[in-house]
Design a protein around this nucleic acid. Structure first.
Lengths: 167, 167
DNA sequence: GACATCTAGTTGAACTTTCAATCATTCTTC
DNA sequence: GAAGAATGATTGAAAGTTCAACTAGATGTC
């Protein structure tokens, strides 16, 4: 717990676990993406329309959506263009702030999502849920929540309090 | 537990945990990548030279390496070209099989890796390890190992036994 | 109320990844 | 031992992502 100035290497077990994480997270991403791609979308596109479908009024501001799906704004702009060309989303100026743009899920987008959702759920089960007990899966979720919170708490704009890491 | 033919949706808690996984895995990837990019490499490039450095003789066959880091062969070919241009790796015909190519870490590549390793370890600690207890982290590693095993056991080429999934 | 500063979103070029086609070699099997 | 199938790696074009620069509107400040 004493902060040593120099980076300590990981011990053998940590190293093994870290490698396991890295490898599995990629296998999983690849598998989920492949399954959705048979239906003509990428996972990252699916996420966008899925978030929109759950948002009140089926719309979200570009910046809020970008944060939610962890994509850069620029990437979201380009992806939204693709989705718009397919008729799945539309852009609308957001109420109140004239800089803002709302991305709205169209009826056609909703239908497309409804067609893909069962495929995707089945894929999540087959590639993830089926390999863990309910407890293991829930522990995975909690651990990942802690990680997300931890990372966000160091993000720029977050006031960390007193210098945890003075150069 | 009775296999219903139709996809069951996820229950609210599973959904929450799955979303947490997705979001955190992306925040983590982004954070680790950003930290390495300050030193001019992407995480996926770092992984390649790091695997090479640990391999006996500091070399691996392209196909073995591609599997190890979960990249397509084509992607690895392109990435290896970039690394080769920087003088960090070299290609050599592999012994025995004249179709094969070994990717070898150069002395310069090793030096570069040694320079970046502490940065990367610190980043893994800061973005991942520090947010979990030792037990939680180990459980995460185990869960991810199960997932990797589960996904690979369904991969094409793996004989699954009698038809688990008749059309 | 005008200045700088910050936030929201877009743009196009550069870069990376994917996709389908290709070439060479090895393995099968007949 | 020759034909066909499978494996290893590469190629170049298409598709997707990042990066830096930019426009427009909001916010803070003096």
């Amino acid at each position: 717990m004493q902060g040593t100035p120099r980076a300590r290497w990981l011990d053998a077990e940590q190293q093994r676990d870290w490698r396991a994480y890295l490898r599995a997270s990629r296998l999983l991403e690849t598998a989920l993406d492949r399954d959705l791609q048979e239906h003509g979308v990428q996972l990252s596109e699916y996420e966008i329309i899925s978030m929109l479908s759950e948002a009140p009024g089926r719309h979200l501001r570009m910046s809020a959506l970008a944060d939610l799906v962890v994509q850069s704004r620029s990437r979201l702009t380009h992806t939204a263009n693709r989705l718009e060309r397919r008729g799945w989303v539309e852009r609308r100026p957001s109420a109140g702030d004239r800089r803002g743009i709302d991305l709205v899920l169209t009826a056609e987008g909703r239908r497309a999502l409804e067609g893909m959702a069962p495929v995707h759920v089945e894929s999540v089960r087959r590639n993830l849920l089926n390999h863990l007990s309910a407890d293991e899966f829930h522990a995975l979720g909690s651990a990942m929540r802690s990680i997300a919170d931890g990372i966000r708490s160091q993000a720029p704009g977050h006031d960390v309090g007193k210098g945890t890491d003075a150069i």
